[in-house]
Simulated assay, not measured.
Amino acid sequence: MARIAIISGSPSASSRLEGVLDFIQQAIVQAGLDVEWIQVRNLAPEDLVYSRFDSLAIVEANRVIAEADAVVVASPIYKASYTGVLKTFLDLIPQKGLEGKVVLPLAIGGTIAHLLAIDHAFKPVLSALGAHHILPGAFVLDTQVQRLEDGSFLLNDEIGHRLTQVAETFIQEVSWRAERNKLSSLSQGIALT
């Protein structure tokens, strides 16, 4: 079974980004895939700021990424880029930590002016971490996600439809790669006997 790591770069537990990620997680789980979360805001600030690669929490987060077949990387957009807390964590991922993984970038922002943040901010750093298969992802306006009184979130129809398509594409890519790797392993096993 394929494993997915979801990295939330939001500094706030009440961020509308969490509503977007919950939606994506539900689609992934319904497809029968495993999900593990890395909430960067829950990592010790000292570990992030002082680049403590040997911190148990950082080692564990990097294990989650290393064992994942695919990674969702998500952040609110502040001043045309992902959050600083996400950047400090990305700096602690090994140089080729995303190599061979399907990567889905997601962003949420207050204005359409940040629409290209995925292409101009996310993709260069993801590529620097070895990611070669970066999906187009999705940019969501925060007005498309409503925070309800009970703390849950409601996505408007347009973004719900678009995120459904994004999730389906992501799941298909992950499933296809997992099947390909399985067949490759089987053929190598047969060749060795």
Rank of each mutant, 00 (worst) to 15 (best):
T88W: 05
L90W: 13
L90I: 15
L90C: 13
D91C: 05
L92G: 09
L92D: 08
I93R: 06
P94I: 14
P94E: 13
P94C: 12
Q95D: 14
Q95F: 12
Q95M: 11
Q95R: 13
Q95N: 12
K96F: 09
K96L: 11
G97H: 01
G97K: 00
G97Y: 00
L98Q: 13
L98N: 11
E99D: 14
E99S: 13
G100N: 14
K101T: 14
V102G: 08
V103H: 00
V103M: 02
L104Y: 05
P105I: 09
P105E: 06
L106H: 09
A107Q: 08
I108F: 00
G109P: 06
G110R: 00
T111Q: 11
T111P: 07
I112Q: 14
I112G: 12
A113H: 12
L115Y: 12
L115W: 08
L115F: 12
A117N: 02
A117Y: 00
A117Q: 03
I118W: 01
I118F: 02
D119M: 02
H120K: 07
H120G: 07
H120A: 06
F122H: 02
F122I: 00
P124H: 00
P124D: 01
V125M: 08
V125G: 05
L126E: 13
S127Y: 07
L129H: 01
L129G: 02
L129K: 09
G130D: 08
A131C: 06
H133P: 02
H133G: 10
I134K: 04
I134F: 03
L135Q: 01
P136T: 05
P136G: 03
P136C: 03
P136S: 02
G137R: 06
A138C: 10
A138K: 08
A138T: 02
F139D: 11
V140L: 04
V140E: 10
L141I: 02
D142K: 09
D142W: 02
Q144N: 13
V145K: 02
Q146S: 12
Q146D: 12
R147V: 14
D150L: 01
G151Y: 03
S152G: 14
L154S: 11
L154M: 10
D157L: 07
D157C: 06
D157F: 04
E158L: 11
E158P: 07
E158V: 13
G160N: 10
H161C: 09
H161P: 04
R162H: 13
R162Y: 11
R162D: 13
L163N: 03
T164G: 10
Q165A: 15
Q165E: 15
V166I: 07
A167S: 15
A167M: 04
A167H: 03
A167N: 08
E168G: 15
F170R: 05
E173Q: 14
E173K: 09
E173I: 00
V174T: 10
V174N: 05
V174K: 00
V174R: 01
S175L: 11
S175T: 15
S175N: 12
S175V: 07
W176L: 14
